[in-house]
Simulated scan of single mutants.
Amino acid sequence: MSRLRTAIAERRRTRARLREDRAFERLLARAPTVESAHELRAISTRR
């Protein structure tokens, strides 16, 4: 049962990370300028 819970938790973390990545890509696409998109990308590399 422990392995099952671990697998489920890992899958949840993976899906959450993918959701965050997609949301960030949408944010970049809506950036008003290229410079602001570069700033957002620089901030994201620090996480």
Rank of each mutant, 00 (worst) to 15 (best):
M1G: 08
M1V: 09
S2P: 05
S2K: 13
L4R: 15
L4W: 15
L4N: 11
R5Q: 13
A7W: 06
I8L: 15
I8F: 09
I8R: 13
E10D: 14
E10M: 15
E10P: 02
R11K: 12
R11V: 07
R12V: 13
R12Q: 13
R13Q: 11
R13I: 04
R13N: 11
T14Y: 11
T14N: 06
R15P: 03
R15T: 07
R17E: 15
R17M: 08
L18D: 07
R19T: 08
E20A: 11
E20G: 10
E20F: 06
D21G: 05
D21M: 13
R22Y: 04
R22D: 08
A23N: 13
F24E: 03
E25N: 07
E25D: 15
E25K: 07
E25F: 01
L27F: 01
L28T: 04
L28C: 14
A29K: 06
R30M: 01
R30S: 04
A31K: 02
P32I: 01
V34G: 07
E35D: 14
E35N: 04
E35K: 05
E35C: 01
A37N: 04
A37S: 13
H38Y: 09
H38K: 10
E39R: 15
L40V: 05
L40F: 10
L40A: 11
R41E: 13
R41C: 04
R41Q: 11
I43F: 06
I43V: 10
I43K: 05
I43P: 01
I43N: 04
I43T: 07
S44T: 05
S44A: 09
R47L: 05
